[in-house]
């Protein structure tokens, strides 16, 4: 109770992330006219709503000490399923949306079960899932399927007005609700705390009698479900299904989560951090757009540098806390 205000080591990466975001936003505002506006800030959410959703799912996976490489492919597969069901099967959105959501959920559950019951590496299992989902989307069609349906157009184009002539999209609302629920789950349910415990030490979690099996399967199921939800949001955004959608997105997601301060080895991190991590990826892109002359590949270079910095920062923090525990 005494040291409530003093900084815990575990919060340092989160604080660093937020500070970095503020710094970059200030940098942009000073350098470019028109950068400092609420709408530029809100556009970060609009353009990256789907990334926020998968990053939230990925946060749980990484917190538990795992990894999910399949999320990018699941987005593509979901977009294909949604597009073909809408355009070719002419089904109503009332059916299309739930079925699309099931795609990732089922894949996630299968991956989680394989990882747990056969004691397989999450990396390999979800790598297989990544190829599988990508392949399946081409099986549906090798061409882009454009969506022309009132429901999808509505979801894509409707703007929710905010004071000051600003607006956000429906996708942003969905993403923010997902993030809020995820924060609650992480900190106020025993599922959430068990995820942290497994990430800290799976062996200890077992010895403490925690439901490790159920939790692990649920983590990958949740990640799969959120990947599908992100797939739908992505479909609203692109108004098409295509097998090449979100290619490599899983790596952007992992980068966002790590920059958001989650320890890649599991056990420490925050959902809110991942949201900020996504915003940082977004702001790099925005700065490069405002700069105008830079190639968009500079985004990748900036992400690479930041990622490296954060990994080093985390390692230093772990060392220092180990040292502290050793002497304390």
């Amino acid at each position: 109770m005494i040291n409530r205000l003093s900084l815990d080591y575990k919060q340092l990466p989160l604080v660093a992330t937020i500070a970095l975001f503020v710094l970059m936003f200030s940098f942009g505002s000073l350098r470019y006219t028109g950068f400092l506006s609420t709408q530029v800030f809100l556009n970060l959410f609009i353009d990256n709503a789907f990334l926020i959703v998968i990053a939230v799912g990925m946060t749980f996976v990484i917190l538990s000490g795992g990894i999910d490489l399949s999320v990018g492919s699941v987005i593509a597969l979901t977009s294909m399923v949604a597009a073909s069901l809408t355009m070719e099967a002419q089904l109503s959105p009332w059916i299309v949306v739930p079925v699309s959501l099931l795609v990732g959920t089922i894949l996630g559950m299968i991956q989680g079960s394989l990882i747990h019951f056969y004691n397989l590496q999450p990396f390999i299992v979800t790598l297989a899932g990544m190829f599988l989902a990508r392949g399946l989307s081409y099986l549906i069609s090798v061409e882009t399927i454009s969506i022309d349906h009132p429901f999808f157009s509505y979801m894509a184009n409707s703007q929710i007005p905010l004071p000051g002539n600003n607006f956000i999209s429906i996708s942003v609302v969905i993403a923010l609700i997902v993030a809020a629920i995820a924060i609650f789950i992480a900190h106020f349910t025993n599922f959430g705390r068990t995820v942290y415990a497994i990430g800290g030490s799976e062996q200890s979690a077992l010895l403490m009698g925690l439901p490790v099996t159920r939790t692990k399967i649920l983590i990958y199921t949740l990640s799969g479900f959120l990947a599908s939800l992100a797939g739908l949001i992505f479909t609203f955004y692109m108004l098409s299904g295509y097998g090449l959608h979100a290619n490599g997105m899983e790596l952007d997601t992992i980068a966002a989560v790590v920059i958001g301060g989650t320890l890649l080895t599991g056990g420490a991190g925050y959902v809110a951090g991942s949201v900020v991590g996504v915003l940082i990826l977004g702001i790099i892109q925005t700065i490069i757009v405002f700069e105008g002359t830079l190639s968009s590949w500079w985004t990748k270079i900036a992400i690479g540098v930041l990622l490296l910095l954060f990994i080093v920062l985390q390692r230093v923090i772990v060392w220092r806390s180990e040292k502290k525990a050793g002497t304390g």
Partner: peptide, 30 residues
């Protein structure tokens, strides 16, 4: 055990209660 079998990345409270948390209105009563 000799090697403390707890999760050092969680708080003291959590290590005592995890697996049999106290809940109120469906949320953990921290």
């Amino acid at each position: 055990y000799q090697e403390v079998n707890l999760c050092s990345n969680l708080s003291v409270t959590e290590n005592i209660f995890i697996g049999r948390e106290i809940k109120k209105y469906g949320r953990l009563a921290w």
